[in-house]
Simulated scan of single mutants.
Amino acid sequence: MERQRLDKWLWHARVVRARTSAAALVERGHVRINGMRETSPGHGIKVGDVLTIALDRGVRVLKVVGFTERRGDAESVTGLYADLGMPRE
């Protein structure tokens, strides 16, 4: 798989709890891909893209490193992205 829908990837990576929440997050303009605001949930992302996501509890900066066909448990998402945000204490 070379590309995946933005809303689907956000849901698979467990950034949000539901795919509809992922679509709403994107439509409201809270997601940037490589610094450019994206408002289309169906926009295709690829490995290497950097997503900046504004959430209620802060901002996450994630680099896409992989895709999956299904949403897995919390352990399985570690191979989908690299967290580029500030180290947490």
Rank of each mutant, 00 (worst) to 15 (best):
Val31Leu: 03
Arg3Asp: 07
Met1Thr: 04
Ser76Ile: 14
Leu25Val: 11
Ser76Trp: 13
Lys63Pro: 08
Thr52Lys: 03
Asp56Pro: 12
Thr39Ile: 14
Glu2Tyr: 06
Leu62Tyr: 12
Lys8His: 06
Ile33Gln: 01
Asp83Cys: 10
Ala74Val: 15
Thr78His: 14
Glu27Tyr: 00
Ala22Lys: 00
Arg17Phe: 01
Trp9His: 07
Arg5Lys: 07
Leu25Cys: 05
Arg88Glu: 11
Ala74Asp: 12
Glu2Gly: 04
Val77His: 06
Glu69Ile: 11
Leu62Ile: 09
Asp73Val: 15
Leu25Asn: 01
Gly35Thr: 03
Asn34Cys: 01
Gly72Met: 13
Leu10Tyr: 08
Val61Gly: 08
Leu51Phe: 09
Ala22Ser: 02
Ala18Trp: 02
Leu62Lys: 11
Gly48Met: 06
Val50Tyr: 04
Ser40Met: 06
Gly66Ile: 15
Asp83Ala: 07
Thr52Gly: 01
Ser21Ala: 10
Ile33Asp: 00
Thr20Phe: 10
Gly79Glu: 09
Ala13Arg: 00
Glu38Asn: 05
Lys63Ser: 08
Ala54Cys: 15
Val65Gln: 10
Ala54Leu: 15
His30Leu: 09
Ala22Gly: 04
Leu84Arg: 09
Glu89Met: 13
Leu10Met: 06
Ala22Cys: 03
Gly44Met: 10
Gly72Asn: 13
Thr39Val: 14
Arg3Ala: 15
Thr20Gly: 09
Asp83Ile: 10
Leu10Lys: 05
Arg37His: 04
Trp9Lys: 01
Glu38His: 05
Gly42Lys: 07
Gly79Thr: 13
Gly48Pro: 06
Ser40Thr: 08
Arg19Asn: 07
Leu80His: 13
Leu51Val: 00
His30Pro: 03
Leu84Ala: 03
Val61Lys: 10
Thr20Met: 03
Ala74His: 11
Ala24Trp: 02
Ala23Arg: 07
Arg37Asp: 02
Thr52Val: 10
Asp56Ile: 09
Gly35Asp: 02
Gly48Cys: 11
Gly58Phe: 14
Arg70Asp: 13
Val26Ser: 02
Gly44Leu: 12
Glu69His: 14
Glu2Ile: 00
Arg60Asp: 12
Arg14Ser: 00
Leu6Ile: 12
Arg3Met: 10
Arg37Trp: 03
